[in-house]
Amino acid sequence: MTSFLTDGLIHAAFWVVVGLTFGGAVLAVFPRNIVYNVLGLIVCLSGVAGLFLYLGSFFLALMQLLIYVGAICVAIVFAIMLSPPLHLEAPKRRIPKLVLSAGAAGLFFAAIAAVSWKTAWKPAAQRGTDWSITTIGHFLLTKYSLVFEVISLVLLVAIIGAILTTGFSRRLSS
């Protein structure tokens, strides 16, 4: 009885999380006020973190919160503060562009959904059960060490590139 109750609760919570994600996503895309968008993004990313929990990875959920919500969203907020004044009224959206984009995105969604439906997904024959962070760390430093290094390099380049881009543009404009 309790397990049934717990299961139901977990089930309901799942759909709540999904709804949170969707709501956040809609909020992140539709409003013309950029601050709402960022808030929506935060909500959506938190929802995705919840989904990660359901998918069995506590670590990834934490990482999601840390990197996305903690770092990227804050960076975006900084960018907003550095860019044009918010009190100016944003121009109206044009209907044809809206329809065109909706059509294209809808078409793409249909394509992805069709692929998901049509494919007969088959689990691997032997499936490991080792979800521990230790294993992830082990893999990162052994089998995937090259990718790890490359990612580090990419980040480094991105940081230097960001500094240079903004620095040069400042010199250009002034």
């Binding site: 860019s83 980040l155 400042r170």
Partner: peptide
Amino acid sequence: LFVMGIAAAEAAIGLSIILALFR
């Protein structure tokens, strides 16, 4: 995890480009 790393890099570069473009 890697995708997150890439996303962070992308955000950094993208935002800096946006700032440059704004200027």
